[in-house]
């Protein structure tokens, strides 16, 4: 006995209610993030860690540690060192504070502290040709040769990606991350 089953696509009457509900939702979605309040650099540290999950480095040694480096004065109050030892994309995260661009070239991600606001250009020049993701909260960082810039919008921390710069160094950023970016410079 062959009994065909047809999936019923009914319930059109619900469509109207759904539209209304969608409007309600939109209003709700602007509600305050109800997580316990965190300091700006606490959030930024988490962001740095999360960036490593969505960026693909050219394959060198798959097992090699993923170097997270800080250049300039530490605004994180030592929090970045707590990230060390975590594993991302199968690689162990290591943290080091660096001072020179030659050191920076060995890193996978370099956070440029605001203390370097006036002298980050030579650093970036020195990193040219190296697959190093550069992140900073220096204003206009991404428009001046940097890759990801962080900026505050009220209590929210947003980021912009200079995709051209990122791809130019052989790195790739997951599209999910780009979707969240405030601005993507092509």
């Amino acid at each position: 006995m062959a009994l065909a089953l047809y999936k019923c696509r009914g319930a059109w009457s619900r469509a109207g209610r759904r539209v209304a509900a969608a409007l309600t939702f939109t209003l709700l979605s602007f509600a305050v993030w109800s997580a316990p309040p965190r300091s700006e650099y606490e959030v930024k540290a988490v962001y740095l860690f999360n960036f490593t999950k969505f960026v693909t480095w050219p394959v060198a040694q798959p097992d090699a540690a993923l170097q997270l480096c800080l250049i300039g004065l530490d605004p994180f109050d030592g929090r970045l060192s707590t990230l060390a030892g975590k594993r991302v994309q199968g690689r162990e995260l290591q943290f080091s504070v660096i001072t020179t661009e030659s050191q920076a070239a060995k890193c996978q991600l370099v956070f440029v502290s605001k203390s370097e606001a006036r002298r980050f250009a030579p650093l970036l020049d020195g990193l040219r040709g190296y697959p190093v993701l550069t992140v900073s909260d220096i204003p206009e960082f991404e428009n001046n040769g940097g890759m990801i810039g962080l900026h505050s919008e009220g209590n929210l921390i947003r980021f912009s990606v200079n995709l051209k710069q990122v791809r130019g160094e052989g790195l790739d950023v997951n599209s999910r991350l780009l979707e969240l970016a405030a601005e993507v410079i092509q």
Partner: peptide
């Protein structure tokens, strides 16, 4: 990604 970066609008 939206969850990690706390992008509530995107989640919505």
């Amino acid at each position: 990604a939206a969850l990690l970066f706390q992008d509530q609008q995107h989640l919505g």
